[in-house]
Amino acid sequence: MTRVTEWVSGLGHVVNEKIARLGFAARFFVMLLVYSGQSFRRFPLTIREIYFSGVLSLLIILVSGLFVGLVLGLQGYETLQRYGSADALGVLVALSLTRELGPVVAALLFASRAGSSVTAEIGLMKATEQLTAMDMMAVNPMARVVAPRFWGGVISMPLLAAMFSAMGVFGGYLIGVVFIGVDDGAFWSQMQSSVDFRQDIINGVIKSFVFGVAVSLIAVFEGYDSTPTAEGVSRAITRTVVTSALAILALDFVLTSFMFRGL
């Protein structure tokens, strides 16, 4: 009996804590937006973060995009040629990439490559009192440390996703046209007639922007909220990767159901 009440009250405690954390996250987001203005006045800080989150993620994004495109090309061809419509390979590759794989896979890679390092950096700065020191120097860490990292990620993400998709289409072209011998003209013209600029490309960009906001917010929040110890920081990094992945997939479902309904 006591065990049951203990369990229930324990559960209540956990739920309470989670909700309080969510509330703190919301307050944090508002603060972040408020201090973003200040951080834009020092734009070099954001440029630096674009370098760390964007430029340094280039390699993994381009290579993965190429391989995803190659695999799509191979698998797509296998299936399509059974129905005699191998010409539609370009459509298949381009639509899968621009609508789904580009934004989603690029965001997952981004979360584990750049998001985790942002969390680690902010967490360690907190653990070594660098954030407190900055605050004591009358420099707001929200404006100088958190906001530039957030916006660096938000700006990088759509660009990375576009590069991923472009690289993937190139991979599909390489396999389909260069190696297998699908007709070059059909590959591109079918693709162009079925991929719509507004419906597919712009929606894909919107998706990657939303993922960029989500991943960057999770990364900076987990770092800022981490327990200032080695263990606390490592747990925060894990949480960043896991929460980001869940958020990306859940948001993708929601966005897809809004964007492509009735198509």
Partner: peptide, 10 residues
């Protein structure tokens, strides 16, 4: 890359 997607793919 965005332009490529818009013009060549889309």
């Amino acid at each position: 890359a965005l332009l490529f997607l818009a013009l060549k793919v889309g």
